[in-house]
Amino acid sequence: TTYKLILNGKTLKGETTTEAVDAETAERVFKEYAKKNGVDGEWTYDDATKTFTSTE
């Protein structure tokens, strides 16, 4: 399943996707990605669109 991440950081904005077996796995991948890029925001998830959003 393809999951999408929308980053709305103070210094980094953008989108990326990952293939994962479930939302929990995708969330771990995306949170590590955000951390590596210095984004520490509030997380939301929309199951209908398989989209995570992190907003600082």
Results as ranks from 00 to 15, higher is better:
residue 4 K to Y: 14
residue 54 S to Q: 08
residue 8 N to H: 10
residue 18 T to V: 14
residue 15 E to M: 12
residue 50 K to C: 05
residue 35 K to F: 12
residue 23 A to G: 04
residue 54 S to V: 15
residue 19 E to A: 08
residue 9 G to E: 03
residue 14 G to L: 15
residue 1 T to D: 12
residue 50 K to Y: 08
residue 48 A to T: 13
residue 21 V to H: 12
residue 18 T to I: 15
residue 44 T to H: 11
residue 42 E to K: 11
residue 26 A to L: 00
residue 50 K to V: 03
residue 51 T to N: 01
residue 43 W to T: 01
residue 22 D to M: 03
residue 46 D to L: 03
residue 49 T to H: 06
residue 4 K to N: 05
residue 51 T to Q: 03
residue 23 A to K: 15
residue 36 K to Y: 09
residue 25 T to H: 13
residue 44 T to A: 10
residue 3 Y to P: 02
residue 27 E to N: 05
residue 35 K to T: 09
residue 18 T to L: 14
residue 1 T to C: 13
residue 2 T to I: 14
residue 24 E to S: 10
residue 7 L to I: 13
residue 12 L to D: 05
residue 52 F to N: 01
residue 19 E to P: 04
residue 42 E to F: 13
residue 49 T to R: 06
residue 10 K to G: 09
residue 7 L to K: 00
residue 29 V to H: 13
residue 17 T to D: 05
residue 55 T to W: 09
residue 31 K to M: 09
residue 37 N to Q: 13
residue 16 T to A: 11
residue 30 F to G: 00
residue 55 T to G: 05
residue 31 K to Q: 07
residue 16 T to H: 14
residue 26 A to G: 01
residue 33 Y to N: 02
residue 17 T to A: 07
residue 46 D to S: 05
residue 27 E to V: 06
residue 7 L to E: 01
residue 35 K to W: 10
residue 51 T to Y: 01
residue 38 G to R: 05
residue 5 L to Y: 03
residue 9 G to V: 05
residue 40 D to A: 10
residue 9 G to M: 07
residue 21 V to W: 12
residue 19 E to S: 10
residue 11 T to G: 11
residue 54 S to M: 15
residue 37 N to A: 14
residue 4 K to F: 12
residue 12 L to M: 14
residue 15 E to K: 06
residue 9 G to I: 04
residue 33 Y to I: 09
residue 3 Y to N: 02
residue 14 G to P: 04
residue 45 Y to Q: 00
residue 51 T to W: 00
residue 14 G to D: 12
residue 49 T to G: 04
residue 38 G to C: 08
residue 46 D to R: 02
residue 24 E to H: 10
residue 23 A to H: 10
residue 19 E to T: 14
residue 38 G to D: 06
residue 4 K to T: 13
residue 26 A to N: 00
residue 48 A to R: 11
residue 21 V to R: 11
residue 30 F to S: 00
residue 6 I to R: 05
residue 16 T to L: 15
residue 17 T to Y: 14
residue 10 K to C: 13
residue 28 R to F: 08
residue 46 D to Q: 04
residue 47 D to F: 08
residue 39 V to Y: 11
residue 13 K to G: 05
residue 22 D to L: 04
residue 13 K to Q: 12
residue 43 W to E: 01
residue 24 E to I: 11
residue 27 E to D: 05
residue 15 E to P: 03
residue 51 T to C: 05
residue 36 K to I: 12
residue 40 D to Y: 14
residue 34 A to R: 02
residue 7 L to A: 02
residue 49 T to E: 06
residue 54 S to E: 04
residue 13 K to A: 08
residue 19 E to Y: 15
residue 5 L to Q: 01
residue 29 V to L: 11
residue 2 T to R: 11
residue 2 T to E: 09
residue 40 D to L: 11
residue 30 F to A: 02
residue 46 D to M: 03
residue 45 Y to C: 02
residue 35 K to R: 14
residue 54 S to R: 03
residue 10 K to N: 12
residue 18 T to F: 14
